[in-house]
Design a protein around this nucleic acid. Structure first.
Lengths: 337, 337
DNA sequence: CTGTTAGCGCATTCAC
DNA sequence: GTGAATGCGCTAACAG
């Protein structure tokens, strides 16, 4: 292990001077700087990051809790987080929670043991165990694309899900639809409620009924889309929906698959909408009408906010609602007469 | 900051005893253990992980270099890495390189500064800068699903790409195909050469010609699939291919999209194959014939090997070639007469 | 501008 | 079985 002491001996200076040369070169004569740099080069010296961190009390790492790595939407957010983190000098510790509380607790505790300086939560749960809740009081934490339930003290960055729900509904109504189904993802989350409320508000305004049993689903997976269609079209309801809201693109992919399998045409027989604007959604047959979320920007913004929290800087605002974009593509069309 | 000293005072013991109680409880009387644990509880003490790490010289972290986070195949590997790492007590630092050498250098250097104990490379390049190459000599590094070019000293875990290429070719030939196109991903990588060699070996055995200009593409993206089809079907070649090998599922998605857009039916007019068995590939219309890679297991295995390297344990073998599985689905069929 | 000194928080000798 | 002392590698205060 080549350490600072060896370099200092090699350069014929003190360890402090070596440290200074590397961290604040302007505090050092050009002459010594050259001497030191030469020794650094020669010894192949790299400062031990662990030691620096103990000393400064900062790990310069952040941990990201994500329920599912294989979801391209989350990964796009994490790309943004990574980019933002890198620019600010943070490393990203990946916390794949699989949606399990125990794993959330484990990863969240990293910030309690100085392994990370802050936490970004992509899921909607409060990630600390009951045991750690007290310790977690002052932990820098931000949630992005979701909102931590029952916790008003943590900032969040999310989409205007309510407005997006309204926009999707208006879009479908403009095509003449009046019988709707919904295949939802996680039903306990705040964004679920927002989207649902957005949809229902328009239906109410338009005097359209929505029966509770037309809301199915419960997770953001392709299989949920398949099962959702089965439930919506198999039951004894005399009139199946002519349009189905899917609460993410994966669900929509499953729904599209299952509708086709049943010989139903999209959008001639049934219109469907997705959510997130995942890359493949544009290349489906037909391409999915969906809501674009600025995932990458959300990730970057989350790092900005987290960094301010870590540095105890005041936040301008604690909640950021980002605009969405409705992408009208081929999976929606006029209602069948 | 509640540190070990506070706890020791609270428990009326020395700091050494607190440390022992937490790390090796068996070295301590039950009586003192209880005393200490109570104090730990009461103080809400969590050992500072940074300090522990400086002391032991181990960060218990590994860094994973991945060229693209949005590719579900890579993410499946990383799921496996995460799981394996967690079981072995390692944390995963995410290094999204975007395929850029500068970012690779930056992330790879983490293992030079004790920020990580080892490195898993998912891409095919030697990730250290020329400057760091000497220092990197003894760095624990493993590559998975690719092979680090020109470096024989690092172990790798990968698929039998040669055999997979052969299997795909046999499959298509059994359907009567004899005019092939290939849309490749990164052409410089070892796995590219292996797959290509596999395909060509069968063609040669069967006496089938393959013109060099039927190999197109250059990156693992949907757009590459689209452009690839354009190149293969637009050129002045009198006879376009009846079957196209796509070197991953994303490319196949693009190819499928573009073929349909041109009014060509899959598989009636053109057969296509993917690679990786990404989740959505099964739900395309038609579902993609593809090669399943045991991505999750590859990730787990990579951690096993890396851990052995970190602990300077001898490796049984330095190169692991895993079996693949050919999934025959709807995107391949008999050649059109 | 540079060197000396004193820790950061913890783990590990070595005595007892 | 436990405590006192030492040091991991580095940075920050203070002198000079």
């Amino acid at each position: 292990m080549t350490n600072i002491k060896k370099v200092s001996e090699l350069a014929g200076v003190s360890t402090a001077t070596v440290s200074r040369t590397l961290k604040s070169p302007e505090l050092v004569t050009e002459h010594t700087r050259e001497k030191v740099m030469k020794a650094v080069q020669q010894a192949g010296y790299r400062p031990n990051w662990l030691a620096t961190s103990v000393k400064t009390g900062r790990s310069n790492s952040i941990v990201v809790l994500v329920p599912n790595l294989v979801n391209p939407f989350f990964m796009r957010i994490i790309e943004g987080i990574e980019q933002g983190a890198q620019e600010k000098g943070y490393s990203v510790l990946l916390g794949d929670t699989q949606g399990k509380a125990s794993r959330e607790h484990e990863y969240a505790s990293m910030v309690l043991t100085n392994r990370a300086d802050g936490l970004i939560q992509l899921d909607h749960s409060f990630p600390f165990s009951a045991n750690d809740a007290a310790l977690a009081e002052k932990v820098p934490m931000v949630s992005v694309c979701e909102r931590i339930e029952g916790e008003r003290r943590y900032p969040f960055i999310e989409l205007d899900n309510y407005a997006a729900g309204r926009a999707l509904t208006h879009h479908l109504i403009s095509y003449g639809h009046s019988r709707f189904g919904i295949i939802a993802g996680q039903r306990t989350s705040q964004i679920h409620h927002d989207r649902l409320a957005g949809i229902k508000s328009v239906l109410k305004e338009e005097g359209i009924d929505f029966a509770d049993n037309m809301l199915v689903g419960g997770s953001y997976r392709i299989e949920t889309g398949i099962e959702g269609i089965q439930q919506l079209f198999d039951r004894d309801v005399p009139v199946p929906p002519t349009a189905v809201f899917c609460f993410n693109d994966d669900i929509a992919v499953g729904a599209l698959y299952e509708l086709k399998r049943r010989g139903l045409r999209v959008p001639q027989d049934v219109s469907i909408t997705g959510f997130d604007n995942v890359k493949v959604s544009a290349y489906m047959d037909p391409p999915l009408t969906t809501v674009d979320q600025p995932a990458y920007e959300m990730g970057r913004r989350a790092v900005d906010v987290l960094a301010q929290l870590i540095n105890r800087q005041p936040l301008q605002r604690t909640r950021e609602i980002l605009p969405f974009q409705l992408l009208e593509r081929g999976s929606t069309g006029p209602v069948k007469i």
